[in-house]
Design a protein around this nucleic acid. Structure first.
Lengths: 246, 246
DNA sequence: CGGATTATTGATACTGCTCAAACCATGTGG
DNA sequence: CCACATGGTTTGAGCAGTATCAATAATCCG
């Protein structure tokens, strides 16, 4: 249930924080530098959900635009045999809906960590996209980012062995989670091995063997509930070695 | 080369045929019944390309909106080790670009069969999308169709064994290629086994073994350069049997 | 007819899955 | 504070499913 979570701040049109989603949209607008006051004027409501909550169920019709304010979520599907495929992970600033128009979801979205959801009104956003120059294009660009991730995912699943898939997944998540994009410091990925394995089509057992090996080499460290990537560049180097070995 | 093909009709703003892309867009518009004359007024140019031609190269900046007028194409990536991943197949009416704004492609698009490309002007479409009510939403809906296919693809690659993947792929292509959507008649899929195998992460050898088995059961028939699906419903039944067996 | 692409078949090797179990961390209620 | 339940992690042994290598056959095209 979407209203299950502890409500952080609720009911006020004006939030004291800026939505990461709007910040990203603003950066994509042609109107050069700072965030447009028009964008900030649009109201949204924040809801906090605990780990594991369902954000958007498959089959549901969406009347609001949900975005990740803070934390990690995932798009996923449950299969008839009970197994689960994680389609992609969503981080702060990502949009949960396919687009800003009402739709029916063909997959679910759930909270991987505790999550803050910033909820906008479809009509308001649609109205803005008709009036603010460049906004529509910005939304397409954001959507295209997610599509690129899916294409990478398909390529990874189709043409790489287990080890390469693990490396690519960790690399992608590290980069998206490190705010600065390409910094050198360690990044903690707060996702269980089972979930990570479900994303790249491995059993959690095999996944564990692979990262166990990577742990011995000091590239990552494991802890309950997450993985610490010590150095993204080491990760990339390992990936290149793999390609070279083939 | 994009200009390599035999040109079917060229240089005239007014085509004697309607672009399948525009027809689909028109059907998604709220303005009820028939295709809006405004949509038909927009000019486009058709180019015919032979099998195997490159339609859009990876890394290219796109200044036109390319759509499939006739035939089959594919989105694909080439990997450093020389192998190829087919990300998805594109049929008549599908858009090749990620969206109608200029972008850089992170993957290539090539003709699987002989193909007619209907090429629109970015600016014209953007202009239309700002003036025609519902057009922008229609474009998002079309894009979302492709995204749904990618999500299916990811799920298939991640959680199904080879046989199930083959069945899903053939089913998807049969449905998209049969104009009537859900008809009973046989459908011919004009794609080599190697390409189909490259889509679902199999070797063409293993792919061949699987469809050989399906051929013995009369569900499909093979011929050089393509596969004939005798009955989509039989295909679905086989898929359900697989699920039940698991 | 000769060369090129595509399809098919066989034998063998290896990746990653399955099953089974132990271990560890965390939280819960008595 | 301890006993227990829970969910996550780690380890082992054996097997199933696919890849790989190698070759042959069918088909098409010039």
């Amino acid at each position: 249930m979407i209203f299950n979570g502890i409500c952080w701040r609720w009911g006020s049109q004006k939030m004291h924080h800026v939505s990461p989603f709007m910040r990203r949209v603003g950066q994509l607008l042609p109107s050069s530098g700072r965030t447009s006051p028009v964008l900030e004027s649009i109201g949204f409501r924040s809801t906090c959900l605990e780990k594991g909550s369902e954000i958007l169920g498959a089959g549901k019709t969406v009347r609001h635009v949900l975005t990740i304010g803070h934390g990690l979520a995932m798009r996923y599907r449950l299969l008839p045999d009970g197994s689960r495929q994680v389609i992609m992970f969503l981080a702060a600033g990502d949009i949960c809906n396919p687009h800003i128009y009402p739709t029916v979801m063909d997959h679910g979205i759930a909270a991987v960590t505790a999550v803050r959801i910033d909820r906008f009104d479809c009509e308001s956003l649609i109205g803005l996209s008709n009036s603010v120059v460049g906004l529509n294009q910005a939304l397409w660009t954001l959507a295209e980012e997610q599509n690129a991730i899916m294409r990478n995912h398909i390529t990874s699943l189709g043409r790489s062995d287990a080890r390469a898939r693990v490396i690519m997944l960790l690399k992608e998540l590290s980069l998206r989670l490190s705010v600065a994009g390409g910094q050198a410091g360690p990044v903690f990925i707060p996702v269980t091995q089972s979930l990570l394995a479900d994303a790249i089509g491995l059993t959690h057992i095999h996944f564990n063997r692979i990262i166990g090996d990577m742990g011995k080499r000091g590239i990552i460290a494991t802890s309950r509930g997450g993985i610490l990537v010590n150095s993204i560049s080491k990760l990339e180097k390992l990936g290149e070695e793999l390609v070279a070995a083939a």
